[in-house]
Amino acid sequence: MITNIYFVRHANSSYTPDELNRPLSENGVKDAQRVTELLSHENISKVISSPYKRAIQTVEGVSNHFGLSISIDEGFRERKLAEGAVTNFDEVILKYWENFDFCIHGGETAYDAQHRGVESLKNVLNRYCGENIVIGTHGNIMVIIMNYYDKKYNYVFWKDLNMPDIYKLIFKDNNLVGVEHIWS
C-alpha cells in the first residue's frame, strides 16, 4: 500500500529569540498560502506539525482547506544545536553534517535527531498507512530524516532548500520508493 508523506519546511519567519513562538514573516504568510494551493488537490487526510509556531502556521491553511485539525509531534521539531545561541551558525551546522556524533554542549547530535525524527515518521507510516499526510517541519530535521533513507540527502541538499519547501516522500510498505519536489 502506498503512503505519501508531504514534508513541508516552514516558510520564512520573523526573527525572535523565542524559537518555539517565532511567527511567520509577512512574506512567510504569503508563501504559506502557496503551500495550501499546491497541496489543495492532494487528498490530504492528516496534518501533523512540529510544535514550533512557524511550522504550524505554514501548514494551517492546508488543515483548514481539508477541515482537519493539526496534530503536534515533538519528533518533527528542529534539531537543537546548542544550549544557547550559536554565533558561527554556518561553521557549526557543517560540523554537525560532517560528523553525526558531533555535539555542542546542550545540543543534539545528528544521530539523536535522526533517531527521534525517523521514529516519529515510522509511527506516522504505521498509523496512517495508505493515506496522504502533511508534516510541517524544519529544514535540518527534514533532511536528516530523508538522509536515513538515502545518503544523497545531505548538507549540500539542505543548503539548497527553499523556505518554504515541499517534498513528497512515497512509501510502499514503509520503504521509501520515491521522492518528488513539489515546491515551485
Results as ranks from 00 to 15, higher is better:
Lys30Asn: 11
Lys30Trp: 07
Asp31Ser: 10
Ala32Tyr: 04
Gln33Lys: 15
Gln33Tyr: 13
Gln33Gly: 13
Arg34Asp: 11
Thr36Gln: 14
Thr36Trp: 09
Thr36Pro: 10
Thr36Met: 14
Glu37Met: 13
Glu37Phe: 10
Glu37Arg: 14
Leu38Glu: 14
Leu38Lys: 13
Leu38Arg: 14
Leu39Ile: 11
Ser40Gln: 12
His41Gly: 15
His41Leu: 15
His41Gln: 15
Asn43Tyr: 15
Ile44Lys: 11
Ile44Glu: 12
Ser45Phe: 11
Val47His: 06
Val47Glu: 05
Pro51His: 03
Pro51Thr: 00
Tyr52His: 08
Tyr52Ile: 00
Tyr52Asn: 02
Lys53Trp: 02
Arg54Phe: 03
Arg54Leu: 05
Arg54Cys: 05
Ala55Asn: 03
Ile56Phe: 06
Val59Ser: 01
Gly61Thr: 00
Val62His: 00
Val62Ala: 06
Asn64Cys: 08
Gly67Trp: 06
Gly67Asp: 04
Leu68Tyr: 04
Leu68Cys: 03
Ser69Leu: 12
Ser69Arg: 13
Ile70Ala: 01
Ser71Ile: 10
Ser71His: 12
Asp73Glu: 12
Glu74Trp: 06
Glu74Gly: 03
Gly75Pro: 01
Gly75Met: 02
Phe76His: 06
Arg77Asn: 12
Arg77Val: 04
Arg77Phe: 01
Arg77Lys: 11
Glu78Asp: 12
Glu78Arg: 03
Glu78Met: 02
Glu78Ser: 03
Arg79Ala: 07
Lys80Gln: 14
Lys80Cys: 10
Lys80Ala: 08
Leu81Ser: 05
Leu81His: 03
Ala82His: 09
Glu83Pro: 05
Glu83Ser: 11
Gly84Tyr: 13
Gly84His: 12
Gly84Met: 08
Ala85Leu: 14
Ala85Asn: 13
Val86Pro: 01
Thr87Met: 13
Asn88Met: 06
Phe89Glu: 04
Phe89Ala: 02
Phe89Asn: 02
Phe89Trp: 08
